[in-house]
Protein backbone atom coordinates (compact mmCIF):
# COMPACT_ATOMS: atom_id res chain seq x y z
CA UNK A 1 0.00 0.00 0.00
CA UNK A 2 2.81 2.38 0.92
CA UNK A 3 4.56 1.31 -2.26
CA UNK A 4 1.50 2.11 -4.37
CA UNK A 5 0.99 5.53 -2.84
CA UNK A 6 4.72 6.22 -3.00
CA UNK A 7 4.76 5.39 -6.68
CA UNK A 8 1.67 7.53 -7.23
CA UNK A 9 3.26 10.47 -5.42
CA UNK A 10 6.46 10.06 -7.40
CA UNK A 11 4.47 9.88 -10.64
CA UNK A 12 2.51 12.97 -9.69
CA UNK A 13 5.66 14.95 -8.91
CA UNK A 14 7.21 13.93 -12.22
CA UNK A 15 4.00 14.82 -14.08
CA UNK A 16 3.86 18.22 -12.37
CA UNK A 17 7.50 18.94 -13.23
CA UNK A 18 6.82 17.93 -16.82
CA UNK A 19 3.79 20.22 -16.83
CA UNK A 20 5.78 23.16 -15.50
CA UNK A 21 8.31 22.74 -18.28
CA UNK A 22 5.86 22.03 -21.09
CA UNK A 23 4.54 24.73 -23.40
CA UNK A 24 1.10 26.10 -22.61
CA UNK A 25 -0.77 24.22 -25.32
CA UNK A 26 0.66 20.93 -24.11
CA UNK A 27 -0.36 21.64 -20.51
CA UNK A 28 -3.92 22.07 -21.69
CA UNK A 29 -3.83 18.93 -23.80
CA UNK A 30 -2.38 17.00 -20.87
CA UNK A 31 -5.18 18.23 -18.60
CA UNK A 32 -7.73 17.09 -21.13
CA UNK A 33 -5.92 13.78 -21.47
CA UNK A 34 -6.07 13.30 -17.69
CA UNK A 35 -9.81 13.92 -17.76
CA UNK A 36 -10.33 11.33 -20.50
CA UNK A 37 -7.84 9.07 -18.77
CA UNK A 38 -9.94 9.14 -15.59
CA UNK A 39 -13.04 8.10 -17.52
CA UNK A 40 -11.03 5.40 -19.25
CA UNK A 41 -9.71 4.21 -15.89
CA UNK A 42 -13.30 3.47 -14.91
CA UNK A 43 -13.81 1.51 -18.11
CA UNK A 44 -10.61 -0.41 -17.36
CA UNK A 45 -12.19 -1.43 -14.07
CA UNK A 46 -15.20 -2.75 -15.94
CA UNK A 47 -13.01 -4.43 -18.54
CA UNK A 48 -11.33 -6.43 -15.81
CA UNK A 49 -14.73 -7.97 -15.26
CA UNK A 50 -15.11 -8.56 -18.99
CA UNK A 51 -17.49 -5.67 -19.64
CA UNK A 52 -17.16 -2.57 -21.78
CA UNK A 53 -19.49 0.38 -21.38
CA UNK A 54 -20.19 2.45 -24.47
CA UNK A 55 -22.16 4.93 -22.41
CA UNK A 56 -19.69 6.43 -19.93
CA UNK A 57 -20.63 9.70 -21.58
CA UNK A 58 -23.72 9.72 -19.34
CA UNK A 59 -21.75 9.92 -16.07
CA UNK A 60 -19.06 12.09 -17.62
CA UNK A 61 -21.76 14.50 -18.79
CA UNK A 62 -23.68 14.37 -15.50
CA UNK A 63 -20.53 15.27 -13.58
CA UNK A 64 -19.72 18.07 -16.00
CA UNK A 65 -23.24 19.51 -15.95
CA UNK A 66 -23.81 19.43 -12.20
CA UNK A 67 -20.41 20.90 -11.31
CA UNK A 68 -20.63 23.30 -14.27
CA UNK A 69 -24.06 24.56 -13.22
CA UNK A 70 -22.91 25.01 -9.63
CA UNK A 71 -19.99 27.05 -10.91
CA UNK A 72 -21.89 29.07 -13.50
CA UNK A 73 -25.15 29.68 -11.64
CA UNK A 74 -24.36 29.38 -7.96
CA UNK A 75 -20.86 30.79 -7.80
CA UNK A 76 -19.14 27.68 -6.47
CA UNK A 77 -15.59 28.08 -7.70
CA UNK A 78 -13.36 25.83 -5.60
CA UNK A 79 -11.75 23.40 -8.06
CA UNK A 80 -11.30 20.49 -5.66
CA UNK A 81 -14.86 20.81 -4.39
CA UNK A 82 -16.27 20.91 -7.90
CA UNK A 83 -14.26 17.86 -8.87
CA UNK A 84 -15.55 15.96 -5.86
CA UNK A 85 -19.09 17.01 -6.67
CA UNK A 86 -18.60 15.77 -10.21
CA UNK A 87 -17.35 12.42 -8.94
CA UNK A 88 -20.24 12.07 -6.49
CA UNK A 89 -22.75 12.97 -9.19
CA UNK A 90 -21.30 10.41 -11.58
CA UNK A 91 -21.23 7.73 -8.90
CA UNK A 92 -24.79 8.52 -7.81
CA UNK A 93 -26.09 8.35 -11.37
CA UNK A 94 -24.27 5.07 -11.89
CA UNK A 95 -25.63 3.73 -8.59
CA UNK A 96 -29.12 4.56 -9.76
CA UNK A 97 -28.64 2.69 -13.02
CA UNK A 98 -26.51 -0.16 -11.69
CA UNK A 99 -29.24 -2.56 -10.45
CA UNK A 100 -30.64 -2.56 -13.98
CA UNK A 101 -27.39 -2.67 -15.86
CA UNK A 102 -25.48 -5.23 -13.81
CA UNK A 103 -27.56 -8.08 -15.24
CA UNK A 104 -26.23 -7.52 -18.73
CA UNK A 105 -23.18 -8.89 -20.50
CA UNK A 106 -21.14 -8.38 -23.62
CA UNK A 107 -22.49 -6.35 -26.45
CA UNK A 108 -25.85 -5.86 -24.74
CA UNK A 109 -24.19 -4.24 -21.77
CA UNK A 110 -22.34 -1.96 -24.20
CA UNK A 111 -25.45 -1.08 -26.16
CA UNK A 112 -27.75 -0.53 -23.19
CA UNK A 113 -25.26 1.82 -21.58
CA UNK A 114 -25.01 3.64 -24.89
CA UNK A 115 -28.78 3.95 -25.22
CA UNK A 116 -29.04 5.40 -21.72
CA UNK A 117 -26.38 8.00 -22.47
CA UNK A 118 -28.22 8.97 -25.65
CA UNK A 119 -31.41 9.48 -23.64
CA UNK A 120 -29.54 11.95 -21.44
CA UNK A 121 -28.19 13.60 -24.59
CA UNK A 122 -31.72 13.98 -25.92
CA UNK A 123 -33.00 15.42 -22.64
CA UNK A 124 -30.17 17.94 -22.32
CA UNK A 125 -30.49 18.93 -25.97
CA UNK A 126 -34.09 19.89 -25.13
CA UNK A 127 -33.18 21.78 -21.96
CA UNK A 128 -33.26 25.28 -23.41
CA UNK A 129 -32.84 27.08 -20.04
CA UNK A 130 -29.35 25.55 -19.77
CA UNK A 131 -28.45 26.18 -23.38
CA UNK A 132 -29.95 23.22 -25.26
CA UNK A 133 -27.51 21.71 -27.75
CA UNK A 134 -25.22 24.74 -27.47
CA UNK A 135 -24.56 24.11 -23.77
CA UNK A 136 -23.19 26.81 -21.50
CA UNK A 137 -19.88 28.30 -20.43
CA UNK A 138 -18.20 27.39 -17.17
CA UNK A 139 -16.18 30.03 -15.32
CA UNK A 140 -12.58 29.47 -14.31
CA UNK A 141 -12.23 27.73 -10.93
CA UNK A 142 -10.33 28.97 -7.91
CA UNK A 143 -7.82 27.00 -5.86
CA UNK A 144 -8.17 27.23 -2.09
CA UNK A 145 -9.59 30.71 -2.45
CA UNK A 146 -6.86 31.79 -4.87
CA UNK A 147 -7.96 32.74 -8.38
CA UNK A 148 -4.94 32.62 -10.65
CA UNK A 149 -4.45 34.93 -13.62
CA UNK A 150 -4.73 33.57 -17.15
CA UNK A 151 -1.00 32.77 -17.30
CA UNK A 152 -1.04 30.34 -14.43
CA UNK A 153 -4.64 29.12 -14.52
CA UNK A 154 -3.92 26.26 -16.92
CA UNK A 155 -0.99 25.05 -14.88
CA UNK A 156 -2.88 25.33 -11.59
CA UNK A 157 -5.74 23.24 -12.91
CA UNK A 158 -3.26 20.77 -14.34
CA UNK A 159 -1.60 20.34 -10.94
CA UNK A 160 -4.95 19.67 -9.29
CA UNK A 161 -5.83 17.25 -12.08
CA UNK A 162 -2.56 15.38 -11.60
CA UNK A 163 -3.14 15.07 -7.86
CA UNK A 164 -6.66 13.75 -8.37
CA UNK A 165 -5.51 11.37 -11.07
CA UNK A 166 -2.66 10.06 -8.92
CA UNK A 167 -4.95 9.43 -5.98
CA UNK A 168 -7.57 7.83 -8.23
CA UNK A 169 -5.00 5.61 -9.95
CA UNK A 170 -3.49 4.54 -6.62
CA UNK A 171 -6.89 3.73 -5.12
CA UNK A 172 -7.85 1.80 -8.23
CA UNK A 173 -4.60 -0.15 -8.11
CA UNK A 174 -5.23 -1.06 -4.47
CA UNK A 175 -8.79 -2.02 -5.21
CA UNK A 176 -7.89 -4.07 -8.25
CA UNK A 177 -5.30 -6.01 -6.28
CA UNK A 178 -7.60 -6.55 -3.30
CA UNK A 179 -9.72 -9.65 -2.88
CA UNK A 180 -12.99 -8.07 -4.07
CA UNK A 181 -11.15 -6.48 -6.99
CA UNK A 182 -9.62 -9.73 -8.13
CA UNK A 183 -13.04 -11.37 -8.25
CA UNK A 184 -13.66 -9.22 -11.33
CA UNK A 185 -10.79 -10.91 -13.16
CA UNK A 186 -12.20 -14.26 -12.17
CA UNK A 187 -15.63 -13.23 -13.42
CA UNK A 188 -14.05 -12.25 -16.71
CA UNK A 189 -12.74 -15.81 -17.01
CA UNK A 190 -15.84 -17.64 -15.93
CA UNK A 191 -18.83 -16.14 -14.18
CA UNK A 192 -20.51 -19.36 -13.24
CA UNK A 193 -17.48 -20.66 -11.38
CA UNK A 194 -17.28 -17.40 -9.48
CA UNK A 195 -20.87 -17.79 -8.41
CA UNK A 196 -20.30 -21.39 -7.32
CA UNK A 197 -17.37 -20.21 -5.25
CA UNK A 198 -19.74 -17.98 -3.34
CA UNK A 199 -18.98 -14.54 -4.81
CA UNK A 200 -21.66 -12.50 -6.53
CA UNK A 201 -20.86 -11.38 -10.06
CA UNK A 202 -23.81 -9.02 -9.86
CA UNK A 203 -22.35 -7.23 -6.83
CA UNK A 204 -18.89 -7.08 -8.40
CA UNK A 205 -20.31 -5.60 -11.58
CA UNK A 206 -22.39 -3.12 -9.64
CA UNK A 207 -19.39 -2.02 -7.59
CA UNK A 208 -17.19 -1.61 -10.65
CA UNK A 209 -19.92 0.24 -12.46
CA UNK A 210 -20.40 2.77 -9.65
CA UNK A 211 -16.64 3.24 -9.43
CA UNK A 212 -16.51 3.82 -13.19
CA UNK A 213 -19.39 6.30 -12.92
CA UNK A 214 -17.57 8.22 -10.19
CA UNK A 215 -14.37 8.38 -12.23
CA UNK A 216 -16.32 9.48 -15.30
CA UNK A 217 -18.05 12.21 -13.29
CA UNK A 218 -14.68 13.36 -12.02
CA UNK A 219 -13.31 13.45 -15.56
CA UNK A 220 -16.37 15.33 -16.78
CA UNK A 221 -16.11 17.98 -14.08
CA UNK A 222 -12.42 18.38 -14.86
CA UNK A 223 -12.97 18.72 -18.59
CA UNK A 224 -15.82 21.17 -18.08
CA UNK A 225 -13.50 23.39 -16.06
CA UNK A 226 -10.55 22.99 -18.42
CA UNK A 227 -12.59 23.73 -21.53
CA UNK A 228 -14.71 26.41 -19.91
CA UNK A 229 -17.73 24.96 -21.69
CA UNK A 230 -20.05 21.99 -21.41
CA UNK A 231 -22.66 20.79 -23.87
CA UNK A 232 -24.83 17.70 -24.43
CA UNK A 233 -22.15 16.20 -26.71
CA UNK A 234 -20.43 15.16 -23.50
CA UNK A 235 -23.11 12.47 -23.44
CA UNK A 236 -23.03 11.67 -27.16
CA UNK A 237 -21.97 8.16 -28.18
CA UNK A 238 -18.86 9.42 -29.98
CA UNK A 239 -17.52 10.78 -26.68
CA UNK A 240 -18.08 7.42 -25.01
CA UNK A 241 -16.51 5.68 -27.99
CA UNK A 242 -13.37 7.79 -27.82
CA UNK A 243 -12.90 6.90 -24.18
CA UNK A 244 -13.42 3.20 -24.83
CA UNK A 245 -10.69 3.45 -27.38
CA UNK A 246 -8.37 5.05 -24.88
CA UNK A 247 -9.16 2.29 -22.39
CA UNK A 248 -8.41 -0.43 -24.95
CA UNK A 249 -5.24 1.39 -25.93
CA UNK A 250 -4.16 1.59 -22.32
CA UNK A 251 -5.10 -2.00 -21.65
CA UNK A 252 -6.67 -3.35 -18.52
CA UNK A 253 -3.45 -4.54 -16.95
CA UNK A 254 -2.20 -1.12 -15.93
CA UNK A 255 -3.93 1.72 -14.13
CA UNK A 256 -1.40 4.29 -15.32
CA UNK A 257 -1.22 3.41 -18.99
CA UNK A 258 -4.65 4.92 -19.72
CA UNK A 259 -3.31 8.40 -19.06
CA UNK A 260 -0.47 7.87 -21.50
CA UNK A 261 -2.90 6.40 -24.00
CA UNK A 262 -5.21 9.38 -23.63
CA UNK A 263 -2.34 11.80 -24.26
CA UNK A 264 -1.19 9.86 -27.31
CA UNK A 265 -4.69 9.80 -28.80
CA UNK A 266 -5.10 13.54 -28.22
CA UNK A 267 -1.75 14.32 -29.81
CA UNK A 268 -2.25 12.05 -32.80
CA UNK A 269 -5.68 13.53 -33.46
CA UNK A 270 -4.48 17.08 -33.06
CA UNK A 271 -1.40 16.76 -35.26
CA UNK A 272 -3.15 14.80 -37.99
CA UNK A 273 -5.84 17.50 -37.93
CA UNK A 274 -3.11 20.12 -38.27
CA UNK A 275 -1.16 18.54 -41.10
CA UNK A 276 -3.94 16.72 -42.94
CA UNK A 277 -7.02 18.87 -42.29
CA UNK A 278 -8.89 17.20 -45.15
CA UNK A 279 -8.09 13.60 -44.32
CA UNK A 280 -7.31 13.36 -40.61
CA UNK A 281 -9.97 10.68 -40.11
CA UNK A 282 -8.09 8.45 -42.52
CA UNK A 283 -4.89 8.84 -40.53
CA UNK A 284 -6.65 8.40 -37.21
CA UNK A 285 -8.29 5.22 -38.53
CA UNK A 286 -4.95 3.82 -39.69
CA UNK A 287 -3.36 4.69 -36.37
CA UNK A 288 -6.12 2.99 -34.40
CA UNK A 289 -5.83 -0.08 -36.56
CA UNK A 290 -2.06 -0.31 -36.22
CA UNK A 291 -2.28 -0.06 -32.45
CA UNK A 292 -4.92 -2.78 -32.26
CA UNK A 293 -2.89 -5.04 -34.53
CA UNK A 294 0.49 -4.57 -32.89
CA UNK A 295 -0.52 -3.91 -29.28
CA UNK A 296 -3.73 -5.87 -28.94
CA UNK A 297 -3.64 -5.67 -25.16
CA UNK A 298 -2.81 -2.00 -25.00
CA UNK A 299 0.22 0.11 -24.18
CA UNK A 300 -0.05 -1.12 -20.63
CA UNK A 301 0.99 -4.57 -21.80
CA UNK A 302 4.40 -3.14 -22.70
CA UNK A 303 5.41 -2.88 -19.08
CA UNK A 304 2.71 -4.52 -17.01
CA UNK A 305 3.04 -8.06 -18.36
CA UNK A 306 4.49 -9.47 -15.21
CA UNK A 307 2.55 -7.27 -12.81
CA UNK A 308 -0.84 -8.90 -12.53
CA UNK A 309 -0.32 -12.58 -13.14
CA UNK A 310 -3.63 -12.73 -14.99
CA UNK A 311 -2.16 -13.48 -18.35
CA UNK A 312 -4.01 -14.12 -21.55
CA UNK A 313 -7.39 -13.34 -20.07
CA UNK A 314 -8.36 -11.50 -23.23
CA UNK A 315 -8.35 -14.52 -25.47
Amino acid sequence: MIRVFGLAALGAVLAIVAGALAPAWLVFTMTKAIAFGLVALGIVGLMRGGLVSFGQGLYYCAGAYVSGLLAARFGVSEAALLLLIGAVTGAAAAALVSPLIARYRGIFFAMLTMALSMVLYGVLAKATPIGGTDGFNVPRPSFGGWTPGPESADLALYVVAVVFAAVAAALCRLYYDSGPGLVALAARENELRVEYLGASVFTVTQRNFILAGGLAGLGGALNGMALGHVDPFFSYWTTSGEVVFIAILGGYASAVAVFGAALIVELVRSFSGQYFPESWQLFLGIFLLLVIIFLPRGFGSLWAKRATGAKGAGE
Binding site: I107, V244, E278, W280, Q281, L282, G285, I286, L288
Partner: peptide
Protein backbone atom coordinates in the same frame (compact mmCIF):
# COMPACT_ATOMS: atom_id res chain seq x y z
CA UNK B 1 -10.30 -12.61 -40.31
CA UNK B 2 -7.22 -12.00 -38.20
CA UNK B 3 -9.39 -11.10 -35.25
CA UNK B 4 -11.99 -13.86 -35.14
CA UNK B 5 -12.61 -15.16 -31.66
CA UNK B 6 -11.36 -11.98 -30.05
CA UNK B 7 -13.35 -9.71 -27.81
CA UNK B 8 -16.50 -8.40 -29.53
CA UNK B 9 -15.74 -4.88 -28.41
CA UNK B 10 -12.22 -4.99 -29.82
CA UNK B 11 -13.63 -5.99 -33.19
CA UNK B 12 -16.20 -3.23 -32.88
CA UNK B 13 -13.31 -0.78 -32.57
CA UNK B 14 -11.59 -2.29 -35.60
CA UNK B 15 -14.70 -1.76 -37.67
CA UNK B 16 -14.87 1.76 -36.23
CA UNK B 17 -11.43 2.52 -37.63
CA UNK B 18 -12.51 1.03 -40.95
CA UNK B 19 -15.47 3.38 -40.79
CA UNK B 20 -13.20 6.39 -40.24
CA UNK B 21 -11.01 5.38 -43.17
CA UNK B 22 -13.98 4.76 -45.46
CA UNK B 23 -15.37 8.17 -44.56
CA UNK B 24 -12.28 10.02 -45.75
CA UNK B 25 -11.54 7.67 -48.63
CA UNK B 26 -15.05 8.35 -49.96
CA UNK B 27 -14.44 12.07 -49.60
CA UNK B 28 -11.09 11.85 -51.37
Amino acid sequence: RFFYGRDEVLILLITYSVFLMLEDATKL
